[in-house]
């Protein structure tokens, strides 16, 4: 089956000369939730924005359902529901007004479904958007994205401004909706714990390149952790454990099974330069 989201040799350089992405090759199959994990400035937002058609690739290609979003943005947007990093709603409009606007802007917008989601969350549709909490605003933006009936949902760190309870609710609703509608979601975050339970696939992005691309199950099955110095073979990198001890992430090594957080930490640690590694050690 053809992937619904692709990038081939994707590179993006901003005007100030900084490379946000270099040589990204990704193929995300249809269905399920993919976590796009990486530290700040890893290029997560830039990657999502190239799929949305907000950023033009400096090199390489990007496809959404086989469509280049920069060349045919309108056709690509038919497949995309987008939740930006800082969900900004219109101050002067009520929640219901936002739904009205979505109906006018997007033929086929599913107002009924969007209303149902908002009602389930007890978000008053008559309330002015400015009077909603950050979590409620994020949920409204998510409901708008769901209402588009798009087969791809791109969520750019939507959890960043939410408290832990709101995060859990958000992820629960996302997972439920994706499974019900058969959509594909890409959820970026720099906090692994946020996405661990909800995601089927994992992409670790660091310094503008892909460090790991795998299903969550495969990643957990194929990575081990051992105390640094005692690990035999397949060491990807070493990183600090919760008590300050040095741990080594191994692929198919002899250590204990790694947690998802340890896998991510290990891959991110592998991007540090040699002096940085020595300093950390």
């Amino acid at each position: 089956m053809a992937p619904i989201l692709e990038t081939h040799d994707l590179a993006k350089r901003y005007r100030r000369g900084v490379w946000a992405l270099t040589g990204i090759d990704l193929e995300i199959p249809a269905g399920g939730i993919t976590a796009l994990v990486g530290p700040n400035a890893a290029g997560k937002s830039t990657l999502i924005k190239t799929w949305v058609g907000f950023e033009r690739p400096t090199r390489g290609s990007v496809r959404v359902a086989g469509i280049d979003p920069w060349r045919d943005r309108a056709a690509a947007l038919d497949h995309i529901g987008y939740v930006p990093q800082s969900p900004a709603l219109y101050d002067g409009l009520s929640v219901e007004d936002h739904l009205d606007m979505a109906v006018l802007l997007r033929p086929g917008f599913d107002r009924v479904a969007a209303r149902e989601r908002l009602d389930q969350l007890d978000i008053p549709r008559s309330a002015n958007a400015r009077n909603l909490s950050g979590g409620q605003q994020a949920q409204v933006v998510l409901a708008l994205a769901f209402g588009t009936r798009a087969d791809v949902l791109l969520l750019d760190e939507p959890l960043a401004s939410l408290d832990p309870l709101a995060r859990r609710e958000f992820l629960h609703i996302l997972a439920d909706a994706v499974r019900t509608d058969g959509a594909t979601a890409v959820l970026s975050s720099h906090i692994v714990a946020d996405v661990e339970q909800a995601c089927d696939r994992l992409i670790v992005l660091g310094v503008g390149r892909v460090l790991l691309q795998s299903s969550v199950a495969d990643a957990l099955a194929t990575h081990r952790v051992a105390v640094a110095g005692e690990a035999a073979g397949g060491v990807i990198s070493t990183f600090a454990g919760p008590a300050g001890e040095r741990l080594a992430l191994q692929r198919d090594g002899d250590g204990r099974p790694a947690t998802l957080e340890e896998i991510v930490l290990g891959y991110l640690a592998s991007t540090r330069s040699a002096p940085e590694r020595e300093q950390a050690a």
Partner: peptide
Amino acid sequence: EQGTAQLAWTIGRSRVRWLIG
């Protein structure tokens, strides 16, 4: 400035149509 363009320009297919309106 307020970030709402991200919403309007992804819910709507055409920015030009949005602007004309």
